[in-house]
Simulated scan of single mutants.
Amino acid sequence: MPVRSNPTGRQLRLGAELRKLRERAGLTSTAAAQLLGMKQAQVSNMETGRLGVSAERVRTMACHYDCPDQVLTEAIARMTGDRKRGWWEAYREALSHPLLDLAELEHHAQSLRDSTTARIPGLLQTREYALEIFRQAVIELSPPDIEHRLSFRIKRQAILFREDDPTPYEAIIHEAALRMQVGGSTVTRQQLQHLLDMSERDHITLRAITFDAGAYPGSGQSIHYAHGPVPQLDTVYLDQAHGLAFLDAEAQLHKYRTLFDRVEAVALVPAKTRDLIHTVMREL
């Protein structure tokens, strides 16, 4: 099997989980290779996502590493099964690799949670709202770049509209984002109506944080949390000025789970959130 030059985010995560299993067993990559009857370079390439691995190989490695968590082992093994090219691959020459990794992560997530302060989350943005966001980018984008980013963002939203298994989604949005007139009052009103429409779907939970709530944990950043098939395979992604950052260390996941729970504690319930949105729309 040839060595990959540019593994995807999911392939990198699979490799990272194999490395964690080995390290928990207290084995070096050389010792692991001897146990598995492989070369040390093969083990290293698997752990960096540069070399493919089968589900059966994952189970064999977990056995040799004395991993007691069968549920985790099977969840990692299932990460090897999807070899089809996702729709996001069509954008590989037009957009940055982290954006493609984001779409892949969302596609496979069991559920998603967002907390935002200044903008409506991308998965809930209308085309007109998103267009204005891209037009106001710090680094001016060309019309073709804007079109690529816009179509990519809209296609990401397809996970919320799947007929058989739409992805469960929770968004916590600060009142500041609801009141900010992105693109003017007409675009903002359309965006708020879209939020109301989406909030009526059974798999979508929309909650708002009012100005009256004051300061709260995580209020200075947008946080995105993707739930995997088991908690160990969850991922946090942060949208920062220099680009997307993906976090999956156990301590980081625990920190952001706790943070989300504290944010939820100060957020309005869905019914009162819809009341707030109606109030903001009347005041436009």
Rank of each mutant, 00 (worst) to 15 (best):
H64K: 15
H64M: 14
Y65M: 00
Y65E: 07
Y65V: 10
D66F: 10
C67I: 10
C67F: 02
P68V: 09
D69M: 00
D69I: 06
D69S: 02
V71T: 13
V71W: 04
L72N: 07
L72I: 01
L72Y: 02
E74M: 05
E74F: 08
R78K: 13
T80P: 06
G81R: 13
G81L: 14
G81Q: 14
R83V: 14
K84F: 04
G86E: 07
W87E: 07
E89W: 12
A90Q: 15
A90F: 04
Y91H: 08
Y91V: 06
R92T: 11
E93V: 12
L95K: 04
L95Y: 07
L95H: 02
S96T: 12
S96N: 08
H97P: 03
H97L: 13
L99N: 07
L99R: 06
L99Y: 14
L100R: 00
L100D: 04
L100G: 01
L102S: 04
A103F: 05
A103W: 03
E104T: 10
E104Q: 13
E104D: 14
L105S: 04
H107D: 15
A109G: 09
A109Q: 08
A109K: 08
A109L: 11
Q110C: 04
Q110R: 11
S111E: 06
R113S: 12
R113K: 12
R113N: 04
R113F: 03
T116P: 06
I120M: 03
G122T: 01
L123E: 01
L123H: 07
L124P: 05
L124Y: 05
T126Y: 01
R127W: 13
R127S: 06
E128G: 02
E128R: 08
E128P: 04
Y129M: 10
Y129T: 08
Y129H: 14
A130F: 05
L131F: 09
L131K: 15
L131Y: 03
L131P: 02
E132V: 15
E132R: 15
I133R: 03
F134N: 04
R135A: 12
R135N: 14
Q136R: 15
V138D: 13
V138C: 06
I139R: 14
I139A: 15
E140N: 06
E140A: 15
E140M: 09
L141P: 00
L141E: 00
S142T: 15
S142A: 13
S142F: 06
P143K: 02
P143E: 12
P144C: 05
D145G: 01
D145K: 13
D145Q: 15
I146M: 14
L150Y: 08
L150H: 05
F152Q: 03
R153C: 13
I154L: 15
Q157R: 05
Q157V: 09
A158F: 01
I159F: 02
I159H: 02
L160N: 05
L160Y: 09
F161I: 00
F161H: 12
F161Y: 13
F161W: 05
F161K: 11
F161V: 01
P166L: 08
P166C: 02
P166F: 02
P166R: 00
T167F: 05
P168C: 03
Y169S: 03
E170I: 05
I172A: 07
I173K: 01
H174T: 03
A176C: 11
A177D: 05
L178A: 02
L178Y: 04
L178E: 01
R179F: 07
M180N: 09
G183T: 02
G184I: 08
G184M: 03
S185R: 15
S185W: 06
T186G: 09
